[in-house]
Design a protein around this nucleic acid. Structure first.
Lengths: 183, 183
DNA sequence: CGTTGACGTGTCAATGTTGGAAGGTAAAGT
DNA sequence: ACTTTACCTTCCAACATTGACACGTCAACG
């Protein structure tokens, strides 16, 4: 019995999505991964170049120009657009299944109460710092260009709400732990 | 120049953390991964048994009993406890670097406005459903036993706040998209 | 002219992860 | 007695991911 694979392969779709906006080289894409997508989907150089090769083999992208230093500019094909749409509309998102931070919290009972409170408070600080960083980013970006900017801003808003929530939760948790009955 | 590796290896610490509470077999651990840790850290059978082997080789756990069907019960050793503590107190948590959901949102500009709104509203529904599930879980668990329960509840609270935030954000985003100037 | 820095692509080994198959034992129900 | 269900471990191929390393070019500067 043959079954079609139910792969997620989001790296593939991240590359397709970026190329759907405009053609780019692997180098260009890396810059986008390190800036626009930094808080959404991380990728390394090896992955990006590797994925471009695979996408090219699969006919989802093509080389549209070759520049000075062996630069290859890729563009999405119709098949690629179709794949991207299919992913966006037809594939259910997979919820995050792992969290380093929460795993630690789960085991905080192995530490003394003071240590646990300290940990939770540093979580709160990290969340606050993250929020500042995002706010700074918001000021630094030109929000009036490209189709990515509309949704980019919505994604940024998520990050900000997330960090606010995270900080409040961590402070609440620290209080819970600090003021319990049994030491 | 030799440098110590800066590995995260949270699966290892998830296993250690569970064994720190009480000894267990690989099978027992799997059940815990599928229940207590389901929303925090997913692991497959292969991983758990493989990790137990490595931990055993490294002296962080030992076999304390052998039961009926080749069952091996593992317990954490002092070295294991030390490693767990070190991870909890001395290793900075690594923030989540990837989100399937957010990546989609980032590329929602490839769809029509209606499709985008539909997507965002289904995100809201999913978040609401998740919240219900967590609330049900809260009712089903005995919160008065073991050192895990205190922090387990705190982790659960995180999940609930997270899903509330997620739902509100998705509804807000749908509204933003639905009521913009340019169609 | 020589150096530096940004541009640009490609490959590799080690490790993590997935999903399943294979192989077997004990207990409980019929 | 028989069968189902739960228990329990081990192995593996395929794929994803990381973090380097290797190679080479163009432009600008002093």
């Amino acid at each position: 019995m043959l079954e079609g694979k139910v792969e997620v392969m989001s790296l593939r779709h991240a590359v397709l999505g970026l190329l759907a906006d405009r053609p780019a080289s692997g180098y260009d894409l890396m810059k986008l991964f390190d800036t626009s997508l930094a808080n959404v989907w991380a990728a390394t150089q090896s992955q990006v170049y590797g994925e471009l090769g695979k996408l090219s083999d699969a006919g989802l992208v093509t080389v549209t120009a070759e520049g000075p230093r062996g630069r290859k500019e890729y563009a999405i094909t119709e098949a690629g657009e179709a794949e991207l749409r299919q992913w966006l509309t037809g594939t259910p998102p997979t919820p995050a299944r792992r969290s380093d931070s929460l795993l630690r919290v789960f085991f905080l009972g192995r530490l003394t109460r003071l240590e646990a409170v300290t940990y939770l408070e540093s979580e709160a600080s990290r969340a606050a710092a993250r929020r500042s960083a995002l706010q700074e980013l918001e000021g630094a970006v030109d929000w009036d260009e490209g189709p990515l900017s509309v949704y980019g801003r919505i994604v940024l808003e998520y990050g900000m709400r997330q960090s606010v929530m995270h900080e409040e939760w961590a402070r609440w948790a620290a209080e819970q732990v600090g003021s319990a009955d049994t030491p």
